[in-house]
Design a protein around this nucleic acid. Structure first.
Lengths: 133, 133
DNA sequence: ATTTAAATTGTTATAATATAACACTATGTA
DNA sequence: TACATAGTGTTATATTATAACAATTTAAAT
């Protein structure tokens, strides 16, 4: 199964920041990223935010809006970052990207009362994970 | 059709802030709210945020996470603010709460790969509204 | 190879969003 | 009354994010 990400050559800053997020077991916040990449020469918040913006745009990472945190995309079905769904444990804050063909199909086809369809969405589910129940 | 909101007597600050949001044709941001209620004696951000937290908790308002803005709930089916869905126009920023029985039913019954169900979710759809298309 | 446009970078400063801590006050209820 | 719970007012500070501008790198097209 091929990923739907268009291939991009990441720039130095983008690569450094993507690698950090990709290796992280949990979503990372911008200033935590900043702290962790300062030894690599990235010194200012804006350098981090610019890389984050680009990585989100090309679908390499997602932003968890309710947590202001960033997670690497591991979901080949999340059409270039335009259709995202996450589960969030309200106790341990474990966050997982949901990969469900039926869910993404349902939401991609959802029409509101005016018959409007949306190509892009973000869904965040909240509950307790296995361990915390 | 009865609202599912448990009745709460709002406190003075909560009432002032709810009234403002409820009358607003668009979602309001915290510091815009602060500016607008200063003449009524609410002077500090924390007074606003505390009222907002409570109003969200009891389901009188919702937070639009991707916009850091607050909107009054007008949706009787959004089970005490635990299940919310919005459409957001990416051009004019018009934001509407989606009231769809089939959507809320689908999401309330959604189970992830581990069979986990979530009682709470927030969904934000993005696209172009009628006027902006 | 040289030019050119677009994207990216580095930098300083500042804006916007949100919470900590503490003392005090009101409210409900046993 | 007395007790617990929730709300208030206040100052200070933490956290998240962008503006503005000059310099540099990159891609692509001559």
């Amino acid at each position: 199964m091929k990923t739907m990400h268009k291939e991009h050559t990441l720039t130095k800053n983008q690569q450094i920041i993507f690698d950090l997020i990709d290796k992280s077991p949990e979503p990372m916040k911008a200033y935590s990223i900043l702290f962790n990449v300062q030894k690599k020469g990235i010194k200012a918040p804006l350098q981090v935010y610019r890389a984050l913006d680009k990585l989100v745009e090309i679908g390499k990472i997602h932003k968890i809006e309710s947590r202001n945190a960033f997670i690497a995309c591991h979901n080949s079905s999340c059409q270039v970052s335009k259709a995202t769904a996450f589960s969030i444990c309200e106790i341990c804050e474990k966050i997982t990207e949901i990969s469900s063909a039926s869910l993404s199909k349902y939401l991609a086809n959802f029409k509101d009362k005016d018959g409007m369809k949306y190509s892009k969405y973000n869904l965040e589910f909240f509950g307790l994970c296995k361990k915390c129940r």
